Each structure stands twice: as structure tokens, then as C-alpha cells.
Amino acid sequence: MKSISIYAVTRNQNIEQLQKLERQLSGREYFLKMRTWELESMRSLVRELEAHMDEVYALRFFYSFQIPRLGKEFDLLQIKDEQIVNIELKSGAVSDETIRKQLTQNRYYLSVLGRPIYSYTYISSQNRLVRLTNHDHIVEADWQQLCGNKKNAVAL
């Protein structure tokens, strides 16, 4: 499976066209059943990213990546030589404790890759971005840091 441009997938197309595009871009062997709420959350995320960085179209993520045999799914996962960025998408309000549990579990599964892991959740109904700290706390996240516009930034 290959990473895909979330910008390309979020352009105005119907869900069937997007499923075909996602399969073609990712090289997935089957059509992924895309959920409307998740697509809308991803579109909202892309709009927010566009407000904070210039080259959103160049961002590449594994979309709806599953770990074989475990069935563990990651909404958006970017794996680079120097770091991993995990972004979970939510359409409605979710408790910080629920977010913390999910991101902590995700970090556990990704830790075998031996790279720094940056874990975020984007809640589209609240336009809220939160991150998991190194001490397993949920805090409000900084879009500028996520987008790489500051020194020591995550740099998508």
C-alpha cells in the first residue's frame, strides 16, 4: 500500500469516484468503504492545513491503514525516516480520555518503528486539534507546529 495525497482525495467528487481514486493512488487491492463523516472531517482538516501551509497538495499519508492480523486502523499516518505523524479524525465531540486512550494505543503499536511519534486528533465539528504529550496528556495543539512553520516543528 502506498501513501496518498489527502488534498487530491478531498476534492469535490462523489464518494464512489473517491473510492476509485483512493484505490488507484494507494495501490490497495480492494475498494475501501469511505465513510461520509470521515471524508467531511478530512476535508475540514485539509482546509485548516491550507490556512497554515502552502504546499498541502504535497502532503502524503497512508489513509485508513490497518495493521495486518491485529485489525488496528489508523485514519491518517505519515511515516518518514525521521518521524511518524498520526492524525485521528473525529466528526463529533469526544472526551479527552477517549482520545488519550486511542492515541496512547496507537503510539504503542507504532513504537516498534523506533522513530519519534507525533499523535494528533482533529475534531471537525469543533475545529479542534489536540495532541498527545510525551507524558500521555491531551493538550490543545498548535497548527503552526504541526505544519512545520516554527523551529523544531513536526513538519508534515
Results as ranks from 00 to 15, higher is better:
residue 21 L to P: 00
residue 32 L to M: 09
residue 37 W to A: 06
residue 79 I to L: 07
residue 32 L to E: 15
residue 61 F to V: 06
residue 97 E to C: 01
residue 119 S to T: 02
residue 48 E to D: 12
residue 121 T to C: 06
residue 134 N to P: 05
residue 39 L to P: 03
residue 103 L to P: 08
residue 82 E to F: 07
residue 56 V to F: 07
residue 106 N to D: 15
residue 34 M to F: 03
residue 9 V to Q: 10
residue 91 S to Q: 11
residue 66 Q to E: 14
residue 133 T to N: 11
residue 2 K to P: 00
residue 57 Y to K: 15
residue 46 V to T: 13
residue 26 S to H: 05
residue 130 V to R: 13
residue 13 Q to M: 15
residue 2 K to T: 10
residue 52 H to K: 07
residue 11 R to F: 00
residue 23 R to M: 05
residue 107 R to I: 00
residue 98 T to H: 11
residue 90 K to Q: 04
residue 52 H to R: 15
residue 137 H to P: 02
residue 77 L to I: 09
residue 27 G to E: 11
residue 13 Q to C: 03
residue 140 E to H: 05
residue 15 I to E: 14
residue 82 E to M: 11
residue 46 V to Y: 12
residue 150 K to R: 13
residue 50 E to K: 13
residue 132 L to A: 05
residue 146 L to K: 15
residue 42 M to N: 00
residue 74 F to E: 10
residue 111 S to Q: 08
residue 152 N to E: 09
residue 105 Q to Y: 10
residue 98 T to Q: 12
residue 148 G to D: 12
residue 85 V to Y: 02
residue 64 S to Y: 09
residue 122 Y to F: 15
residue 12 N to S: 14
residue 114 G to C: 07
residue 103 L to N: 04
residue 43 R to Q: 13
residue 48 E to M: 03
residue 135 H to D: 15
residue 54 D to N: 12
residue 74 F to V: 05
residue 54 D to S: 11
residue 112 V to K: 10
residue 115 R to G: 02
residue 125 S to D: 12
residue 75 D to F: 06
residue 103 L to Q: 11
residue 78 Q to L: 05
residue 8 A to G: 00
residue 74 F to Y: 14
residue 71 G to P: 02
residue 87 I to N: 09
residue 67 I to G: 06
residue 149 N to K: 14
residue 42 M to L: 15
residue 119 S to G: 00
residue 133 T to S: 04
residue 147 C to P: 02
residue 77 L to T: 10
residue 100 R to K: 06
residue 134 N to M: 09
residue 51 A to M: 13
residue 132 L to P: 14
residue 116 P to I: 06
residue 116 P to S: 03
residue 86 N to Q: 06
residue 132 L to R: 15
residue 67 I to Y: 11
residue 93 A to I: 11
residue 32 L to I: 09
residue 63 Y to V: 12
residue 128 R to L: 03
residue 42 M to C: 13
residue 48 E to K: 10
residue 57 Y to D: 14
residue 45 L to N: 06
residue 9 V to N: 11
residue 110 L to G: 09
residue 133 T to D: 12
residue 56 V to C: 02
residue 101 K to C: 01
residue 47 R to Q: 05
residue 40 E to W: 11
residue 87 I to W: 10
residue 129 L to E: 05
